[in-house]
Measured scan of single mutants.
Amino acid sequence: VTTYKLVINGKTLKGETTTKAVDAETAEKAFKQYANDNGVDGVWTYDDATKTFTVTEMV
Rank of each mutant, 00 (worst) to 15 (best):
Y34R: 03
L13A: 08
D41W: 11
D41A: 12
K51H: 15
G15D: 11
N9G: 04
T2R: 08
Y34T: 03
K51I: 03
V22T: 15
G42H: 02
N38M: 09
V7G: 02
E16W: 14
I8K: 01
A21D: 03
K32D: 02
K29D: 05
A49Y: 09
G10Y: 06
E25K: 14
A27Q: 01
A30N: 11
G10H: 06
K32F: 06
T12V: 14
G10M: 15
V40W: 10
G15F: 14
T2A: 10
G10R: 04
M58Q: 14
A35E: 01
L13Y: 10
T52D: 01
Y4C: 01
D48S: 10
Y34W: 10
A24G: 04
K11V: 13
D41I: 13
K51S: 05
F31Q: 00
K20V: 15
N38Q: 15
V59F: 12
D47I: 05
A30R: 05
Y4G: 01
Y34E: 02
T19W: 07
I8Y: 07
T18P: 02
F31G: 00
L6R: 00
K29V: 07
T3C: 10
K14D: 05
L13K: 11
W44I: 02
V40C: 04
K11G: 09
A35Y: 03
A21P: 02
L6K: 00
T12D: 15
L6F: 05
G39M: 07
K51Q: 10
K51D: 03
G10E: 03
T19Q: 07
E57T: 08
T54G: 03
K11S: 09
L13V: 13
A24K: 14
A27T: 01
T18G: 04
A24T: 11
E16V: 14
K32G: 03
T45Y: 08
G39T: 04
T50Y: 05
F31H: 02
T52P: 00
K5R: 11
T56D: 10
K11I: 12
T26V: 07
V1N: 14
V1D: 13
F31D: 00
G15Y: 15
T54H: 06
A21F: 05
E28M: 15
W44K: 00
D37V: 13
G39Q: 08
D47R: 03
D23M: 04
N9R: 11
A30I: 14
N9T: 07
A27L: 00
T45F: 08
L13Q: 09
V7Q: 08
Q33W: 05
F53Q: 00
K11Q: 11
F31E: 00
K20F: 13
A49W: 08
E16S: 12
F31N: 00
V40L: 10
K14W: 12
K11D: 06
V40E: 02
T26H: 11
W44C: 02
G39N: 12
Q33E: 09
W44V: 02
T17G: 04
T19M: 14
V40F: 10
K11R: 15
V43R: 08
T26K: 06
N38G: 04
T50F: 05
E25G: 10
T19C: 11
A49H: 11
